[in-house]
Amino acid sequence: MLERLKPRLLPLTMAAALLGSLLAFAAPSSARAAVPETIPLKLANNSGLGQPVYVYTIGTSLTTGQQGWADANGTFHAWPAGGIPPVPAPDASIPGPAAGQTKTIRIPKLSGRIYFSYGQKLVFKLTTGGLVQPAVQNPSDPNRDILFNWSEYTLNDSGLWLNSTQVDMFSAPYAVGVQRADGSTVNTGHLKSGGYNAVFSALRAQSGGWAGLVQTRSDGTVLRALSPGHGMESGALPAAVLDNYINRVWQKYATATLTVTPFADQPATKYYGRVSGNVMNFTNGAGAVVTTFQKPDADSVFGCHKLLDAPNDAVRGPISRTLCAGFNRSTLLVNANQPDTSAANFYQDSVTNHYARTIHGQMADGKAYAFAFDDVGQHESLVHDGSPQQAYLTLDPFS
């Protein structure tokens, strides 16, 4: 039943978007004036599928702070009150372009998501806490058998941050882009030729339960691969899948020091981690303990949360995101100086985040948001511009 789902409220946990939102509050009036209230978003349907496409712009208005949706003209509409059990949300769908066609809509200043679905409209409901978004790790979610995906974006007075994301799942392929003030464009998110099917094939061939992440419809259509955290939540991936690596990390730093330099532009800011029992203590240069971490489990690692929580502060959060990236990329045993930002060193241990490894390996530019802090070292699939002229969302071929 939908009412059993946890509401997933916006804004989202996209680090770059959060940074953009924070910058907006400090932006001078001249910078605010440079970014209009809405910008065009060009949708291109290169999917090769003959099914109708439905598009949704959903998020939190950075003008009013309300949750809601935008129509094709970029006009923001606040959601009405929700209920318990959740009540149907207004139909926020925008007809997308047919196969081989393009369509331009406008997107307003908000922090949220641009959903798209094939063949069927998505089901959104409203609870008293806000919008209930699709959570297909729950087999009773009404969107479970719909082929869909989403991009994340923030448009504010400081510009546009737009990314492709696989933090929750890998599904219908797409790429994002932005046209800059000088007329040039940048894009990211395209897969290699054959990359879409290659991701599913690799996960199915990977020992250790990773095949369980792949979800199919009753007619045999492959719909998506769940992220490892959602796979564990649904029982598709064993809870102990990372225990061997986590145990080895804890053993290593009981007798060695892990040095974390969390800010690339502040090389003198360093923290030093040592394990004592079940706890890793981090000290500063004066030897004072600044934060501690309990030995994490796989769920904490995959989600970069719980025992690896990363608050928006100047110490624990930056250390935690560095640890999270090191665990997911399995660099902590081979490099005692973190973050290790060289992609050549990532995912080399047999016990690693094979979901992230596989997705990055099939991206045309190697960049993806396969876990929450995949932006450590700038390996994320993100485009940004302070004076965006146009945004792009391209629905790519499945074959």
Rank of each mutant, 00 (worst) to 15 (best):
R32G: 00
D365A: 04
T64D: 01
G317C: 10
H305L: 09
P80Q: 03
P40G: 08
T104H: 15
G100S: 01
N46C: 12
V383C: 01
L323A: 03
A240H: 06
W250T: 01
L22T: 01
T216A: 10
S171M: 10
T322G: 04
G273F: 04
S171P: 08
G194W: 08
P86M: 07
Q338H: 01
A181S: 15
T38S: 13
I58Q: 01
L237W: 04
A26L: 10
F148W: 04
T291G: 00
M232Q: 15
S151G: 09
A172M: 13
S218T: 15
D313P: 01
L126A: 06
P86A: 06
H230M: 13
A98Y: 11
A33E: 10
V315W: 07
L5P: 07
A356C: 05
T352H: 01
Y153G: 12
K42C: 14
K270N: 02
V376I: 06
F124D: 01
T128N: 15
G277R: 05
Q251N: 09
C324L: 00
P36I: 05
T257G: 14
I39M: 11
G130V: 08
G130C: 04
R248M: 09
R113E: 06
H190W: 11
I246H: 00
T60L: 11
Y347S: 05
Q133G: 07
Q67H: 15
F327H: 08
T259D: 12
Y196G: 11
N278E: 15
N45K: 02
D145G: 08
Q338C: 00
G235E: 02
L191T: 06
A370Y: 05
Y253M: 13
Q390M: 12
N337I: 12
Q378M: 12
T154S: 13
Q66F: 10
A98N: 14
A98L: 14
Q215S: 10
A15F: 12
P108K: 00
L62R: 09
A92K: 02
A44T: 15
I105M: 14
Q101S: 13
A268Y: 05
P90Q: 10
G208F: 11
D219V: 08
A364R: 12
D313N: 08
D157Q: 02
Y56A: 02
S164Q: 11
I39H: 12
L258A: 06
N345V: 03
G229W: 06
A175L: 15
A254M: 14
T341R: 08
V275S: 02
S387D: 12
P36E: 03
T64P: 03
N156V: 00
N345A: 06
G231I: 00
G229C: 07
A343I: 00
N244V: 09
P134K: 03
T154D: 11
R316H: 05
A391Y: 07
P311Q: 10
